[in-house]
C-alpha cells in the first residue's frame, strides 16, 4: 500500500485541523460535514442512543469506538435512515437529514456499509458494482424497456466499475457470483460498491470484522485511500490497533452517549474511556474476551427473561443495545 509520508497532503490537512481541538465530547470542528444534535433512540424502556452533540470533520478519518452495547451501530442506523430516531436533528453539508428515508440519505452523499456484509449473492461481482451507480436512466421502468436509452450510460458505469474492481483487486472475479467470494473479498466488494455511489461521506460499520489478517492490511490501505481522494470516513471499530493506525480522530461512545473525543494517540489514556471499558480489554484485539462477555450478557438476559413469568417471548430484544446491535442485519 501507499506510504503515508508520500501522501502527506490530505492526511496532514486532516490532522492539522484536529491539532488544537479540545478533548471534549461534542467539540466543534473547524469544517464539519456532519453535525448531530440530540439524537435519541429508545427500545421499550431502554435508551440505546442519546447523543447530545457531535461533529465530523470533513476530509478526515474518524473512528467511532466504544464497548459492546454502546449503541454505535444503532447510532449509525439513525444517521443513515435505516431506523427512525425518536428525536433529534442532524445535518449533512448543512442540509437537515432527520426523517429522510435511507435511499435519500445515500443520494445526498452519505453511504454506509454493514457489519455483516451484504453481498448480493446471486448477482455477479460486476452487477453488484453497477448497482451502486446513481441516477441510472435504465432504472426507470419505461426507459428500461428500450435499451438504447441506457446503453451508453451503462457502458460508462461498467468502465468505472472495472476501474474500481481493478483497484480492489477483484477484477479477476468480475463475472463470478458475489456469493462465491470469501468473507474478506465480500468486504472489499461492499466497499467498492459503496464507492460507485460517489459519496462524500463513507460510513463503515466494522470493516475489519471477520477479515483474515492478510486482507486487513489491504483493507486498511483502501480506507486511507478514501481520505486521499477527498472523501470523509466515519467507521465503527473494535480493534484498537487499527483505530490507532488509520484514524485522525476518535469518538468514544458508551451506553448510547458520546463520552469522549480525542486523537487516537491519547484517547485510550482518557479516564472516561478507561472507566467505560473497565473490565473490558482496551488495548488488545477484543475478539475472544469480547465474545465471552457477549455470551455472558446474553445468557444473563435470557436467564432473567426465563425467571420473569410476565415476560412474553418478545421481551428477548430487551437485553438492549447489545441485542439490537447484534440483530441488525
Amino acid at each position: 500500500m501507499r506510504d503515508d509520508t508520500m501522501t502527506a497532503g490530505p492526511k496532514a490537512t486532516a490532522q492539522a485541523a484536529f491539532k488544537d481541538l479540545a478533548r471534549e465530547p461534542g467539540v466543534p470542528k473547524p469544517d464539519p460535514i456532519l453535525v448531530v444534535d440530540n439524537v435519541v433512540r429508545r427500545f421499550g424502556g431502554l435508551t440505546a442512543v442519546e447523543v447530545s452533540h457531535v461533529e465530523i470533520q470533513r476530509g478526515s478519518i474518524t473512528a467511532l469506538i466504544g464497548p459492546n452495547g454502546a449503541g454505535k451501530t444503532t447510532f449509525f442506523n439513525q444517521l443513515t435512515g435505516f431506523d427512525t430516531a425518536d428525536s433529534g436533528t442532524w445535518t449533512f453539508n448543512g442540509r437537515p437529514m432527520n426523517g429522510l428515508p435511507a435511499h435519500k440519505v445515500v443520494r445526498a452523499g452519505m453511504v454506509r456499509t454493514f457489519q455483516l456484509t451484504k453481498a448480493l449473492s446471486r448477482l455477479t461481482v460486476l452487477e453488484n458494482m453497477r448497482l451502486g451507480a446513481q441516477k441510472q436512466k435504465g432504472e426507470s421502468f419505461w426507459r428500461a424497456l428500450v435499451p438504447s436509452f441506457w446503453r451508453e450510460q451503462e457502458d460508462e458505469i461498467t468502465e468505472r466499475a472495472e476501474e474500481l474492481l481493478a483497484r480492489f483487486k477483484l477484477d479477476a472475479k468480475r463475472d463470478d457470483f458475489a456469493g462465491s467470494l470469501s468473507g474478506g473479498q465480500r468486504k472489499l466488494l461492499e466497499m467498492a460498491r459503496a464507492l460507485m455511489v460517489r459519496p462524500e461521506l463513507v460510513m463503515l460499520d466494522e470493516p475489519m470484522a471477520g477479515v483474515n489478517p492478510a486482507l486487513t492490511q489491504s483493507l486498511l490501505g483502501h480506507v486511507k485511500d478514501l481520505r486521499e481522494q477527498g472523501m470523509t470516513v466515519l467507521f465503527v471499530e473494535h480493534d484498537m490497533d487499527m483505530v490507532r493506525d488509520i484514524s485522525d480522530w476518535v469518538i468514544v461512545m458508551a451506553q448510547g452517549a458520546v463520552i469522549a473525543e480525542g486523537p487516537p494517540s491519547t484517547i485510550m489514556s482518557d479516564q472516561r474511556v478507561i472507566d467505560a471499558y473497565l473490565g473490558a480489554h482496551h488495548d488488545a484485539p477484543l475478539s475472544d474476551s469480547e465474545l465471552a462477555a457477549q455470551l455472558h450478557e446474553a445468557e444473563a438476559a435470557l436467564e432473567a427473561e426465563i425467571h420473569d413469568p410476565g415476560a412474553t417471548r418478545s421481551a428477548s430484544t430487551a437485553p438492549g443495545a447489545e441485542t439490537t446491535e447484534e440483530t441488525q442485519k
Partner: peptide
Amino acid sequence: RAVSDNPALAAS
C-alpha cells in the same frame, strides 16, 4: 421460549 428467542444461544 429460549429456543424461540435465539436458537443458537439456546443450543450453546
